[in-house]
């Protein structure tokens, strides 16, 4: 069964849902509660919301329209939603290369992967002064002989 007409509508709803998920838990953003930190991990799910919707639709069709008929059947649509759900969980920007450890969970990031900031309790590995910490501890430099 093909869903020709509703595709754009579904995608729009999906995009809206993604955008709305920037709201705090419960969806009850208090008036003026601007910019509160998201407790969930990774990037904001709506990080790609500023992209051109046409481009997004094109990319999704390209990615999920396996039989190439320019329509998404039930299986393709299911795969697309599953993919979106995973991205929401991981905070992955659609199409972005993450350099994730193979086999690692959706929330995992290796330490020292530049440009990514762990969230939730996994803030950047820091020393007490805010300097980045290395996995396995800090190797000291041998003092220079005088």
């Amino acid at each position: 069964m093909k869903y020709t007409t509703p595709i754009v509508a579904i995608l729009s709803v999906a995009l809206l849902a993604v955008t709305c998920s920037a709201e705090p838990p419960g969806g009850q953003r208090a008036k003026g509660a601007n910019g509160q930190r998201r407790a969930s991990g990774g990037q904001r799910p709506g990080a790609g919301a500023d992209r051109d919707p046409k481009q997004m639709v094109a990319r999704m069709m390209n990615e999920f329209d396996k039989d190439g008929d320019s329509k998404l059947n039930a299986m393709e649509l299911t795969a697309m939603f599953a993919s979106m759900r995973d991205r929401r969980g991981s905070g992955e920007r659609p199409g972005a290369a993450t350099g994730r450890t193979p086999g690692a969970g959706p929330q995992q990031r290796g330490p020292g992967q530049s440009g990514q900031k762990p969230a939730g309790n996994r803030r950047r590995g820091q020393n007490g002064d805010g300097k980045p910490a290395k996995a396995g501890g800090q190797a000291p430099k041998r003092p220079v002989a005088e």
Partner: peptide, 12 residues
Amino acid sequence: TYFGNPPSEFGA
């Protein structure tokens, strides 16, 4: 100052 625990391979 070092007083806590190092990050693991999974992060801090």
